[in-house]
Design a binder for these strands. Structure first.
Lengths: 132, 132
DNA sequence: CCGCATCCATTGTGATACTG
DNA sequence: CAGTATCACAATGGATGCGG
């Protein structure tokens, strides 16, 4: 790939989706489409604490249906965020853990979690005071 | 549980949603529910560059319908991310800009954009090599 | 120019029952 | 225990036309 001039600081100025060719979908859209659903982020957060089994995840998240947990895990696995390990035992045991990719994703993601935690009150206040 | 050093670094270890009372919705869920949709992030990115008018935003994003742009802007305004200014002119002119809250949100968010940009190839590769 | 209302297609989510 | 299959419903998103 072509090298750019050194005075550009891409880390401070990522391109907008409109700055890139249309044949390649914009990365942030591609990522947000996946983790922007109702459950992916919660599953990733739970797995951040360590390896978990299927029902263990379900219990921890609390209000997720088995179906959605299954679908969410499958998609995260498919995208390389989560590794699934099946043990040939009776009763069956399946463990889920973050991959390196998943763990590296959680770094910026957790910065966002911190922001959300710090600014939640402000958002709710804005919502409440909105007139429309 | 992940192995961590004993030092207390709350910014490195935000609580999971299950660690908080149920009466207050978990902040990250509340935030992701809003910006996790198809368009919010793109609109915020566009406004990061500066104040924009309605159709200017629409043209820049490209494939967003007027309806979705309208809905997205309204919700972002409602949550305090965006300020809307109407000028009593003919023809009417409406300008949108990020609030301080919106701008502060974009700091962690852009870290995520950078991550997505850096790791997009890996995600697509994982997706392609997935056998299921 | 701005943006809302309406209609409609698609997708996400939940409940339940069933399988290995 | 760890899922899958099926059905039903809500939410999301696109297209178009109308109104301020």
């Amino acid at each position: 790939m072509a090298m750019q001039t050194a005075e550009k600081t891409p880390r401070d100025d990522p391109p907008g989706p409109w700055d890139r060719p249309a044949d390649e979908p914009c990365p942030i859209r591609d990522v947000l489409d996946r983790i922007g659903d109702q459950w992916s982020m919660l599953v990733l957060s739970a797995l951040w604490e360590g390896t978990k089994r299927f029902n263990e995840l379900g219990r921890q998240i609390g209000d997720i249906s088995k179906q959605m947990l299954s679908r969410t895990l499958r998609r995260l696995e498919q995208d390389g965020f989560v590794r699934r390990t099946v043990y040939a035992e009776v009763p069956p045991r399946v463990e889920y853990e973050l991959t390196d990719l998943g763990r590296s994703f959680m770094v910026p993601m957790r910065a966002l979690v911190v922001w959300a935690d710090d600014n939640h009150a402000a958002i709710r206040a804005a919502r409440d005071s909105y007139e429309g």
